[in-house]
Design a protein around this nucleic acid. Sequence first.
DNA 1: TTTAAGTTAGTAAACACTAACTTTCAGAAT
DNA 2: ATTCTGAAAGTTAGTGTTTACTAACTTAAA
Lengths: 196, 196
Amino acid sequence: MARLKTEDRRKNIIDEAVKIIHKQGFEALTIRELAYRVNVTEPAIYRHFENKEDIILSIMDRMNEFDEELNKHIESVKGKERKIAELINFHFLFFEKNPEITSIIFSEDIFRNGKLLPDKLLSILTNRRGIICKVLEDAKRSREYQGLSSCNLATIILGFIRLVVLRWRLSGFAYSLVESGNSEAKTLLKLIYNYR
Amino acid sequence: MARLKTEDRRKNIIDEAVKIIHKQGFEALTIRELAYRVNVTEPAIYRHFENKEDIILSIMDRMNEFDEELNKHIESVKGKERKIAELINFHFLFFEKNPEITSIIFSEDIFRNGKLLPDKLLSILTNRRGIICKVLEDAKRSREYQGLSSCNLATIILGFIRLVVLRWRLSGFAYSLVESGNSEAKTLLKLIYNYR
DNA sequence: TTTAAGTTAGTAAACACTAACTTTCAGAAT
DNA sequence: ATTCTGAAAGTTAGTGTTTACTAACTTAAA
């Protein structure tokens, strides 16, 4: 098959690894299967990655892209209250567009290999909560959610998003996440906006 | 070692299987390891279970115990509004007491083996949401959450619980789930009770 | 004394990974 | 412009280990 430079091949391998986890689960991610999908032999994989854990860690690095996108998007939204709604909407939009990512984010077992990975997920969650918390703190100033803890509220919002996405995943992505998610989000937003 | 009747040995095996998943992850659940923990040889396992999937399915059956306990507990609580708070509290209490259960409920990869298991988790989640939804419907009648969808609210509550428990798991069960969970729950309850 | 619960000793297949060889290709020297 | 060369990307053929599972034998107990 076509010969690729290591940078391109690395990207190629990670892409296929994510697809495997998405379609067949983390257990199915073997070097054999990966090599087959990439159309090279097994040792060729080791030309570009030290070992399997190295591959998994590289997958995690790709996850950071979302947080960057999220941050950018939120900053561009005008209106502090609208940001909360847009934050939820953006999650659903992104996951509907990149369903493979949910397979990574929701795969607990990925994060149990080694000791680095649980910390990685925890830092993703903490970081995400930080972003939401900041948006809420901003909104607080313009309206009166004074009695509420912004970070606790962030937990509620993030937990809501995760569960809605999990149900969508378990359904086999059978319906529109954006549609059904935002419909359910109305109740949450009502709850927040109507807090006195 | 001591010779057990098949019923007792089955329970024995399931107990150890849950412990393995809890301590070492789903990947570590091998017949070898299981037999070692149970203090029998590998073929003895197959005396009591047809194959590995049979073991996993039996683990799932045990999960139903929680829903029964939850239902009983909620019915015993007086005061329709208090039931909501107690529902959240009971989740935290149960999981703190049975941390192994969280490893099962949160292990996506368990549910990817075969086709029966994803449906199983979906039915657990749907059932749980039904329980919460019912409590909320009751509370609705005595107070005015009229503008809110009870089932959407149930999603918010369940999502909140799951995320709080997930963070606790990722921390390595380093703190009291009941304490920190209920503290965070105050914000959610405020949000619900103060809805006008 | 029958039968259920256990054993020993194995199977074939899959796993992550490696040593050693070959091919491709870009850039330098002719 | 063509050839040479060295390194990078790929191969074949294997390693030892672990996996789920089984056939055939033994032991204990009701």
